[in-house]
Design a protein around this nucleic acid. Sequence first.
DNA 1: TGAACTATGTATAACCA
DNA 2: TTGGTTATACATAGTTC
Lengths: 189, 189
Amino acid sequence: MGRRRIEIKWIEKAEARQVSFSKRGYGVFKKASELSVLCSADVAIIVFSPSGKAFAFGHPSIESLVDRFLRQPAPNQAHLGPDVIEAQAQAHLDPNAYWLRLQSMELLNLMEASKKRKEELKVASGASRVNCDILLEEPSEEMGLQELEKRMMGVKDACNKVRMLLEEVTNGMTPPNINGGVCSMPHNS
Amino acid sequence: MGRRRIEIKWIEKAEARQVSFSKRGYGVFKKASELSVLCSADVAIIVFSPSGKAFAFGHPSIESLVDRFLRQPAPNQAHLGPDVIEAQAQAHLDPNAYWLRLQSMELLNLMEASKKRKEELKVASGASRVNCDILLEEPSEEMGLQELEKRMMGVKDACNKVRMLLEEVTNGMTPPNINGGVCSMPHNS
DNA sequence: TGAACTATGTATAACCA
DNA sequence: TTGGTTATACATAGTTC
């Protein structure tokens, strides 16, 4: 018995998915609430369950935070030019930067792989350029930022395609969220 | 060494608060992302750090979810009449309801206390009405829903007053989030 | 169907480099 | 500060009642 490790991918069994949503949903709201209280951070969360029901938490209120958010273009990639995006992408290489910009889970995984790779290279006391398929391999640490950005876009496009295919196949059923989220993720400081 | 238990209240030490925000912020985004992927739930999060910086995650996009959220009045208490609110408050007593409606952490704690109290009463094989100050005692399980709702409002008002006072005292510094959030929390099913 | 349990994975508070 | 490490508290997957 007891908890077991699971892969972070769509849970196919409807029942298990529902149970997981219930438990984890509770967890997310709780964590958000704690963050808000502990650190005096303003937090708003909106969640739509697989069945389409909406749940939300907001301090001071969802509307005010949405309004505040929409007014400042900073964290919203859609509002950013390539230069700004590149500067943000550089965050993980810049010790003075304090947020790591990521595109959804897929890229989180890529970044983690990149981190590991970086360690390996460090241990080997040498850095060799890795040139590989974006979907199968991790980016090397010395890859150009422009190239990294292109790869990010490539991954996003690929995921969107997969998502669209799944939408067709499942025919009306809510498809798994492969990716597509826009995410600016806290990393350090 | 090692992790120690902490109370969920504003961290006064600025440095510790900053570190905690960084680590927990990362955790919240990760959890939200996982929920989205595992359960095909659409999730949007907006976080303003203590220093006022905005960070966000959204699938499929923050704008679309906000839009969807604002269109359906269900989870937003401000849009609800007393009858609907009461029906939702009833959720924790109704075995067929699947979301528990709560007002921020303060009420989460109240509900948990209520749960414990319920257990105690069950063990004692008797239920006695508890009539007490809302801020000091837990509500009894058989309390009227209308009364429970009033208490919720009372807590919220009290917290808002405290918050306003703190804003004056700290004079410009971001005050701790005592409460004030509107929250509908997943509970079961 | 929902609530509880339990073993285990994860997150993270306090330290330290 | 940014980044690790360690020891623990907390979350939760799988199962049972």
